[in-house]
């Protein structure tokens, strides 16, 4: 992958960061817009990856086509989770703090249920498959074609999401509930419905990110928590509810992680996330582009 040089690490890092950006955008929809801190986000990602793996090994279905299967499934699953498991918490919570504690507990429990279900259906082995594992040359260095394709897929999906949020009426309504759910109600936005939509859409984006990641990363049933943590760090760093910040933070994490892997040790994938997290906590807890509260 890398020989420790310069340019190839930067491009590999940006490509990885691009996919992280997509996953973190999904989490940001759930946390920034629907106000649910979802600790089971990574498990949804692994489910998306599992479906892509399964369809590819069983029927040679291209992961890019699988996206169209994963998306509606993940949307339905996440909508059901919101409607039947999280909405009761939203209703019984007397404050934002209480909802935070309750949703953390429930989604933490859900993440174990998710890991347990995947262990039951697929077992505990690592899974990976060889899709588009051909070299492609960019600026004199070679990269796996699958990485580049996954990156382009992430750019297209993320771009569509961004346009939808910026240019359409429902997108604007969703940004409104992120800014202030109480005032959003006053201008006639159905906040519970919009929140359910944001949560379901967030899960969909994350699951599609998982399907894209599975084309070049090796995963197993219990790796979800690593992606949850990285996505959370990206969202905190970029600013809650701020998609532009999420993208910048994700690219930074992708770059730093690739540097750590190339120069120190590939086993230290979390070190980069924790380093960025500590720096953010100490110097910019309001996020990269956030203003002080």
């Amino acid at each position: 992958m890398t020989d420790g040089g310069g340019m190839d690490i930067i491009i590999t890092g940006l490509v990885l960061g691009g996919t992280y950006a997509l996953i973190a955008m999904g989490l940001n929809l759930q946390y920034g817009m629907a106000r649910i801190m979802n600790l089971a986000n990574g498990e949804v990602l692994v489910v998306g990856a599992f479906v892509a793996f399964w369809l590819y090994t069983a029927g040679q279905v291209s992961p890019l086509l699988t996206l169209f299967v994963v998306a509606p499934l993940a949307f339905a699953l996440n909508w059901l989770i919101y409607r039947f498991m999280l909405l009761p918490l939203v209703r019984r919570a007397k404050s934002q703090g209480q909802l935070e504690v309750d949703s953390i507990l429930v989604t933490f429990g859900l993440s174990f249920v998710g890991v347990g279900l995947m262990l039951a259906f697929f077992g505990g082995d690592y899974f990976s498959y060889s899709y588009l594992a051909r070299p492609v040359r960019i600026m004199g260095e070679t990269y796996g074609l699958n990485r580049i394709v996954a990156f382009l897929g992430a750019v297209v999906i993320g771009g569509l999401l961004y346009l939808w949020l910026e240019r359409t009426r429902p997108g604007r309504a969703m940004r409104a509930i992120a800014v202030d759910p109480k005032s959003a109600r006053l201008v006639g936005i159905d906040v519970p419905r919009m929140s359910a939509l944001a949560f379901a859409l967030g899960g969909t984006i994350t699951a599609m990110g998982g399907a894209l990641l599975s084309t070049y990363l090796t995963l197993d049933a219990s790796t979800g928590v690593l992606f949850t943590l990285k996505a959370l760090v990206i969202v905190i760093m970029g600013g809650v509810g701020d998609l532009r910040g999420t993208i910048v933070a994700a690219l930074l994490l992708g770059l730093l992680e690739t540097f750590v892997a190339a120069w120190i040790d590939p086993g230290l994938t979390l070190a980069a996330a924790y380093l960025l997290f500590v720096l953010i906590l100490l110097f910019r807890p309001q996020g990269l582009f956030g203003r002080k509260a």
């Binding site: 690593l226 994938t269 070190a271 906590l281």
Partner: peptide
């Protein structure tokens, strides 16, 4: 010093992080 969310996130991956460093 900050809201509880930061604390939860930090502790969520802490065991895995320490494990990776020790393995390294």
């Amino acid at each position: 010093r900050l809201s509880g969310v930061y604390f939860v996130i930090f502790t969520l991956g802490l065991a895995e992080f320490v494990r990776q460093v020790l393995t390294w």
